[in-house]
């Protein structure tokens, strides 16, 4: 018997179409865009964004939202940086393992607070964002870390496949891109084949029904916020690898890119829907736009304007579709009620 795939997820196809059109356009403007080198480079550079977007996806599906993951990633990577730069332990695996429990723990705090206070998770996670980040900045005074053991430095260059570029500069498919894909697959498995994943969809679809069905809501919320914490921890490691430097203020402020990417990818902010594939495409679209702006030599200051417009536009389209759906199903009087 076939597994009931949901192939009719239109958002993803629209997105793919937009990505193709945009890519074609950018290639015409600057042929460098559609080279294997640029694509690999670009996937590598966006692996941080892609990994945390997977976490945000899971939170959004459950009907929540998390804006504190940037602070979690920062705290996790900073503590990792402190440990490896002071001990100079020449082991990347160890470095990789440090941020994970930190991320999970900080995420779990969010989960507990969201469950017990029943206040909108935006308010909770803005608070924890300020708290985590504020404490870190206060204690570290914003000092950068850039003294890493050699293994940590070498690891960043690790490639799964290597090609030779035209100028004799090697390039290739980065390990971090692979990590992103593996985590994407893992998240897909969690959402689709683990009981907890189905409960996440159920809670996001109808919280009261989930409660009545006997699902443990606390466990679900704890899981989703810990999960984004976990991914934020891993992403913190990736970010430190990619930059070979840890600046406490480098990540905070990029929350919205991630949320925008996930929503563009079809995750509903009302909960209950969203796919890994969509989140992947959403990140890709945001990244292509940013990359395109650079290729087109637009001033960096325009980035925010364009990002903001995209978020508002994407949210408008989704609100409009919701409106149409309600109008179709229940008539216009119900649609008026959806503030």
């Amino acid at each position: 018997m076939k597994i009931p795939w949901k192939i009719q997820r239109q958002t993803e196809w629209y997105l793919l179409f937009v990505i193709i059109v945009l890519s074609a356009f950018l290639t015409v403007v600057n042929p460098k865009f559609f080279t294997l080198e640029n694509i690999f480079d670009f996937l590598r550079n966006n692996s941080f964004l892609g990994i945390v977007a997977l976490g945000e996806l899971v939170v959004l599906i459950s009907g929540g939202i998390d804006v504190s993951f940037t602070a979690i990633a920062t705290v996790a990577q900073y503590l990792m940086g402190l440990v490896i730069s002071t001990t100079m332990v020449n082991n990347v695996l160890l470095a990789f393992l440090i941020p994970i429990p930190i991320g999970i723990a900080l995420g779990a705090v969010n989960g507990v607070l969201v469950y017990y206070t029943r206040v909108h998770p935006v308010i909770i996670t803005i608070s924890t964002l300020n708290f985590y980040y504020g404490v870190l900045m206060f204690l570290t005074k914003g000092t950068w870390i850039y003294k890493f053991p050699p293994a940590f430095r070498e690891f960043a260059k690790l490639k799964v496949v290597t090609f030779m570029g035209a100028q004799g500069v090697p390039f290739g498919f980065s390990f971090f891109t692979l990590l992103w894909i593996i985590l994407g697959f893992f998240t897909f498995v969690v959402l689709r084949y683990l009981t907890i994943g189905r409960k996440i969809y159920a809670v996001g679809g109808n919280l009261e029904a989930a409660r009545r069905a006997g699902f443990n809501i606390f466990r679900v919320q704890l899981f989703v916020y810990s999960y984004i914490g976990l991914l934020a921890g891993i992403a913190g490691f990736v970010h430190a690898q990619l930059n070979q430097m840890i600046q406490p203020n480098a990540i905070v402020g990029r929350e919205l890119d991630v949320i925008a990417a996930t929503i563009l990818g079809g995750a509903s902010i009302f909960g209950g829907s969203g796919t890994v594939w969509g989140a992947f495409l959403g990140v890709l679209l945001i990244a292509i736009i940013k990359n395109g702006l650079i290729l087109m030599k637009a001033s960096a200051y325009w980035h925010e304007v364009i990002m903001g417009s995209i978020i508002v536009l994407a949210a408008s389209i989704s609100a409009y579709q919701r409106k149409l759906q309600i109008r179709r199903e229940k008539g216009r009087f119900a649609e008026e009620q959806i503030f």
Binding site: P4, R198, Y201, G204, G205, N206, E208, A209, A213, G272
Partner: peptide, 15 residues
């Protein structure tokens, strides 16, 4: 009814 609108018929029945 307390159903999960975003899940399939089979999944709701066997939830």
């Amino acid at each position: 009814l307390s159903l999960f609108p975003n899940l399939s018929v089979a999944e709701n029945i066997a939830s």
